[in-house]
Design a protein around this nucleic acid. Structure first.
Lengths: 219, 219
DNA sequence: ATGGTACGTCTACGCCGTAGACTACTGTGG
DNA sequence: CCACAGTAGTCTACGGCGTAGACGTACCAT
């Protein structure tokens, strides 16, 4: 009586379930085994070590992103914004896995489709490849950072992190205190990505416009 | 013969030395003890648990940033750029500690001075507080992400990460392959921050200009 | 039927964070 | 001057971790 039919996919699925439900620290090989009603060491028939399992988890999350969801008929700016939003939304669906993704994001194969798609959108709009890479890097880094921060702040207590800033000595930190009272520090995290993306779009537009003027001999 | 004169500061210093030298995983209470030629449990006379020690390490790194290094006579855009650069430079000096900072950055007191300073620069230039917060958040998140990625990529092997992308099937990922060959993926990480900051500056300028026009009734 | 192979199990090793009892020293009030 | 309380470092031990290596057991092709 062996044949529990364990596979890499089953393991990954269970691992992600544990991480989502009980946090990254809760994911141990022993816990994984008990989740699947199997000896902890059984996993090692399918993965070389825990690192590989974590890679698989990252891969699983990243493959939830659907790069084809963007409407190709919209202007490239909208496409880029939409891509960034779905990237962030996916990460926010797995806040506990965000630290993993922050460390491995660009190195995992699952995100390559999204990256390629974003590069296509921007270069077809006339952007330099290096600028496009910078933009998509920034989007990836920001998204994982935001998802991570959002996950971390909600776990310890409720939303008391804003209160800590609100209690700062107002003479030393007037603006921070003000921002805390306005809720800008805690609520606005998701807006950070939009703001940054808009900013980078503006920069790309400016560069593109300058290049066009140079080409057409205008100005 | 007891009196080794252990203090919180000594512990923090040794901890950071271990992290910088041998990586985050190398920092264990036992290792910390042996580094200071002291029983591992001795640390617990000065800190409640390892979490607190990690907080101290983050604090130590953050306090290396000197927010007064920016030249107040320069335009606010340059001040912001300079602040962002010194933030990133500090984090890059401790790449192994970057994951810690990514998780705790805004929650630690040491970074508050920098944040306050950045908010002051931007709001004095006419930016909305919420936009200023978004900008500084993005700078913090990007910097820690960049420092972390830079540290992670150099540790496993040399710089072979670019080669992995270079070996991708060119039909599926033409732009990624191109970017890899151009070195844009690995070398350009530091430029990402500059690019994003420039973009956000552009956005702030645009918003400011629009607000000014509205105020003066121009256009 | 038999031998090989894939998969799950078991035991054990050396790490980890840290609780709790113990010891040696220091500075203070009688 | 001394007892005594408090402080700082030590020791032992517990439960948990990742995983190496030996061991069974069920299947499949010969």
């Amino acid at each position: 009586m062996v044949a529990k039919g364990l596979t890499r996919a089953t393991l990954t699925e269970a691992a992600l379930r544990i991480v989502d439900g009980d946090g990254l620290d809760a994911l141990s090989m022993r816990r994984l085994g008990s989740e699947l009603r199997v000896d902890p060491m059984a996993a090692y028939r399918h993965i070389p070590n825990k690192e590989a399992l974590l890679d698989e988890v990252v891969e699983a999350v990243m493959s939830e992103i659907d790069p084809d969801a963007v409407d190709a008929s919209r202007p490239w700016q909208d496409q880029l914004r939409s891509l960034a939003r779905s990237y962030l939304a996916t990460l926010r669906a797995h806040p506990n896995a965000a630290p993993l993704i922050a460390q491995r994001s660009l190195r995992t194969a699952g995100s390559l489709r999204v990256v390629e798609e974003a590069l296509r959108i921007m270069t077809e709009a006339g952007a330099q490849l290096a600028d496009a890479v910078a933009t998509i890097d920034a989007i990836g880094l920001l998204s994982s950072g935001i998802a991570q921060a959002a996950g971390a702040s909600s776990e310890p207590q409720g939303g008391a992190s804003a209160d800590r800033f609100a209690g700062l000595p107002p003479h030393e930190f007037p603006l921070l205190g003000q921002a805390a009272h306005a809720g800008a520090l805690s609520d606005g995290l998701a807006d950070v990505l939009d703001f940054a993306v808009d900013g980078m779009i503006a920069a790309l537009e400016a560069k593109g416009a300058a290049a066009n003027e140079r080409l057409t001999g205008a100005r």
